[in-house]
Design a protein around this nucleic acid. Structure first.
Lengths: 192, 192
DNA sequence: AAAAAGTCTTGACAAAAGTCAATGAAATGA
DNA sequence: TCATTTCATTGACTTTTGTCAAGACTTTTT
């Protein structure tokens, strides 16, 4: 339990056994079933969730259509960060695409860890920096590349997501209709 | 000098006079003229730049077209973060839209400050978190809202940018042709 | 095992956005 | 100040993408 969480942590930061025990004492394990909500729009986001196993998605709903802003597979962290930090109602919904195992950190634990465990703060800083860089790449490619290139990049960057997630959700993630992605893929096949 | 830099810092974190003096000793002032480059694609990004005065933009060039990923007015921070952190060549170009005054932090200063000034690390964590949340909002609206709504949001969120930056650059920031933005604005006026 | 729900593809058509070209106005720089 | 460059708008046309509907196939649930 918490294996992947600490594996990822130790990949970035040296942790003494004592520090690991300290941090571990704040973590909450949680299992969640396929299609089950972790967070619903309007709720207040009370936890950061690390995915030990399984797959989740985070999305907004506008005019009846879901717009996926994030897939979270093993090793990823997911939350409505704005809601978590401010206590405002969430604008995003999070649910499970597969039966999953999570590690939760509550808001109060998060704050206490930031105060008492310098390495936790450093790790959080690194995580959010990585997330920012990934998001910036995504945004750049969405405003500067043709769909075909964007899809190629996606497949290269996240081959595991392509395997495990329905295609119409990838279309949603890219801001496209499912039909358009289907046609782009067809065109790519014919070119080869 | 550095007034705005420390004003923003103190808005988020309590700083003792000693801490302020310590941090100040690492900062480098720099003036930059309109149209002058701060960073060119292919260079290695050696500094984080805080904008004391003026306006800059960060953009990529794809197939001869500029795609603006960030405007940085007074109080904002700009860098090719990936290049800065990894030492890889920059994929973005940064130049000045107006004569500007900057505060630079070099890579080695940044690393030393992270090690020696816990409040600097905390401040950096807060900055990057804010930047992440802003970017996520931008991405969400770009995949889920019609152009008109996106432009309205932009004007509401950044009225100062709308005042000071040419419209075709805002189109570029939104991933649109200048003609399309011009037409959307016309339509909005007629509706009122 | 059967029913139901979800998934992907395709065609026909509509709507949105881009491209190219021209014009006049405004800002910039010598 | 005057020439030059930049900027915003508009029209005509093309390309891209979305929408709606139907069909085949697969997966999930009962």
């Amino acid at each position: 339990m918490y294996d992947l969480f600490f594996k990822k942590f130790r990949e970035r930061i040296d942790l003494s056994p004592e520090e690991e025990i300290q941090i571990k004492s704040y973590l909450i394990p949680k299992k969640i079933r396929r299609r089950q909500y972790l967070l619903q729009e309007g709720d207040i986001c009370k936890h950061i969730a690390f995915v030990e196993k399984g797959a989740l998605r985070e999305y907004s709903i506008e005019g009846g259509t879901e717009h996926i802003i994030l897939f979270a597979l093993e090793g990823w962290t997911v939350a409505d960060l704005f809601s978590f930090l401010t206590g405002e109602p969430a604008v995003y919904t999070i649910d499970a695409l597969e039966d999953s195992e999570l590690v939760l950190i509550s808001k109060s634990s998060h704050e206490e860890l930031l105060q008492t465990q310098p390495k936790y703060e450093t790790y959080m800083r690194l995580l959010i920096t990585d997330a920012y860089i990934a998001l910036q790449k995504r945004l750049t490619s969405s405003i500067s590349l043709p769909i075909e290139e964007r899809y190629k990049n996606f497949v290269e960057t996240y081959p595991d997501i392509v395997q495990r997630v329905p295609q119409h959700m990838i279309a949603s993630y890219m801001g496209l209709s499912p039909e358009t992605l289907s046609r782009v893929r067809k065109k790519m096949l014919n070119q080869k």
